[in-house]
Design a protein around this nucleic acid. Structure first.
Lengths: 214, 214
DNA sequence: CACTGGATCAACCGATCGGTTGACCGGCGC
DNA sequence: GCGCCGGTCAACCGATCGGTTGATCCAGTG
């Protein structure tokens, strides 16, 4: 029996996973948590009971409190850390990279068919890595065809851009001249494949280069 | 018994709703669909069987094909249209207004406690309107505070604005002249207390008038 | 019926932005 | 050492945007 901890802020999703996984004989959903802090408490509680969690199923987007990436990092830092399988809605590059960097051992999408999720949980429990086919394909594509990455300075500028500042104001905040701001912008437009500042914000947000405005 | 049709592109969420609603004696989940077209087929199929759907539980965000708003509009246009209760993740003005305009009889959030969802489904089945407390509060605030509220047309424009379109492109999409776009923009800037388009996007996102760009 | 407010359009002008060209400097790799 | 690249700056010009004034139409409301 593989003992599973569900972490998701939506009761509906937790019920769905519980129902879906409960249909498989080898799984036992032993606990649930709505956010990161509760997940860590559950892991510790079950460990002292001699029934340690075998796999954590973690959502990335959680409203209040610690987010999925932070929770994953914290869990992986525990002495007897169980593998963490990410189960989320979005498959953006930034999300995937952040999750892997935080120590996740897999990345699945919520709209995956049950058998795929089953295989991923089994893989994670066995200490293996499991990526959803879509996610794997994305990473392969990225390696083969790397999108032009924004430099640190350019990302900094895009973040200010998204707050609605004009070029002059951005220049002041970044301690550079307005001319330099414009130069950076041209490079940014080029890399993102757009031709104006609002489209740049949309593109940068879509690619999760920045988080949404305000 | 209230016969329910679930419409959501995520198998996990459908399973969750099925499990949650199945726990209540008065509910019977008679069918599921992953998108709008399938939902309409199911409604027609069940009607011919003499077991018409009493309530449709509909997600707004659906990857491929018809989205929730379009599906709702199509369903409400049917001769024996069942009430449609929206069950979604986001509570932005744009989403809420679009859903209500399309004929939804309720708007609930997925992270709502089961009892709240239960009450909403019962209300919808009885032909009443059911709004999540958060949503209701938002609408109330809008009514009480008429000053800083964008009109439906203005919200529509802000949404296009956030995708990065220029005035001319927005004009084309909205079937109005560029002059009118500019007039709307002036009013929008005024209401949001900003003085350029990027700041308007930031403000509109922060106030949850729209969801984040693209 | 007059009034208000939302939506539509036009003309105009100054400010800002988009795009180019060209330049200088400092670090990194071959 | 030389080339490449990221970061910095300047000048210029056409396109777009911001802001104003003024106007028409229509749907509610008092």
């Amino acid at each position: 029996m593989i003992r599973i901890l569900l972490v998701d802020d939506h009761p509906v999703v937790r019920a769905g996973l519980r129902a879906m996984l409960g249909g498989f004989e080898e799984f036992d959903v032993v606990a649930e948590a709505a956010e990161g802090a509760g997940a860590i408490r559950e892991i510790e509680r079950l460990a002292t009971l001699g029934e340690p969690v075998d796999v954590v199923l973690m959502d990335l987007q959680m409203g209040a409190g610690m987010d999925g990436v932070g929770a994953t990092r914290r869990i992986r830092a525990m002495p007897t850390a169980p593998p963490v399988l990410i189960l989320t809605t979005y498959d953006t590059d930034a999300d995937i990279l952040a999750a892997v960097e935080a120590g996740a051992s897999g990345y699945m999408l919520k709209d995956a068919p049950p058998e795929q999720i089953r295989a991923a949980v089994q893989a994670a429990a066995a200490g293996e890595t499991a990526l959803a086919p879509e996610v794997a394909a994305r990473l392969m594509g990225r390696i083969r065809n790397p999108a032009p990455a924004l430099s640190a300075r350019e990302i900094e500028l895009v973040e200010l851009l998204a707050t609605g500042l004009a070029n002059k104001a951005i220049a002041k905040k970044m301690f550079i001249s307005e001319a330099t701001v414009k130069t950076h912008l041209v490079h940014i437009y080029d890399k993102l494949g757009v031709d104006n500042r609002t489209a740049a914000i949309a593109a940068a947000t879509a690619r999760r280069i920045i988080r949404g405005p305000a």
